[in-house]
Amino acid sequence: MSRRRPPLAPAPPGVNRRIVLSFLASAAGAVGFAVTYGLGGQTQWEGVCLAVAFAGLATGLAIWGKRLVPVGGYVEEHEGFTPPPAEQAMTAAVLTAPDSPTRRRGLLGALTLALAALGVAALFPLRSLLPWDRTRPLGALRHTPWRAGVRLVTSEGRPLRPSDIPPGTTVGVFPEGHVDAADAPAFAVRLQPERFTRPPAAGHLDGLVVHSLLCTHAGCPVRLYLDGTGRVLCPCHQSSFDLFAAARPVAGPAARPLPGLPIEVGPDGFLRATGDFTRPPGAGFWSRP
């Protein structure tokens, strides 16, 4: 058999040159990337250089694939997926031969039982993914670090007096010692008591009310306060709560009012809680209300 190679088909004029130019551009891009990186790096240039390097290669190969090798014009047969009945029967016969394990129904039943038991047993270690201190979800979701006597502090941990809450803005407040607790953030706001259409759930101190900061829809902090209207807005899904009406939801997807925090002024003159939130804060869960 002859090992001599047939001659190359002649390339249309200009094609080779375009491919070589593309590959050269790619090499230039690669060098550009290396130089940029070596000189200290610059994100935009690095991106452009790498893009040129890859695009040059891609262009060259695309021209090569389109102009120097045949495109289209081939057909491959397709056997289809309806096997000859005889062949299917032969395979089935092998599987169900007299000594086939599939015919030992009793043994198979016992085997299934053993495998099922093992499968269920293998699920048990998943329980270890639960909190290692065995916190139960419902209890954890219901209770926050707020309790009677816990002082209200700022995010820096500074205790607050009633005079630290100016009218016209909300002040983020946290339980002292638990500034990072995710279910405890609350806000204090000073309102005119005569505008209350419903009494606040946790009462008020001369118009000073404290509510949970977490939206009762999906738990985002309701950070946007529209002064004058007395409404707070959640930036995630635009739930809006009317602080004059016991923080009732007035628009958007939230269905429950923001829980209130009962407060008093302690003997030291600082604000402190007299208990936990009036309801569990944040998003709802499967529970008796």
Partner: peptide, 19 residues
């Protein structure tokens, strides 16, 4: 050739976007 070219095009576009 053509699939390799497409792969490199994807990389080129992604790095251009990333940069």
């Amino acid at each position: 050739l053509r699939s390799l070219a497409l792969f490199l095009w994807v990389l080129a576009v992604l790095f251009a976007l990333g940069g």
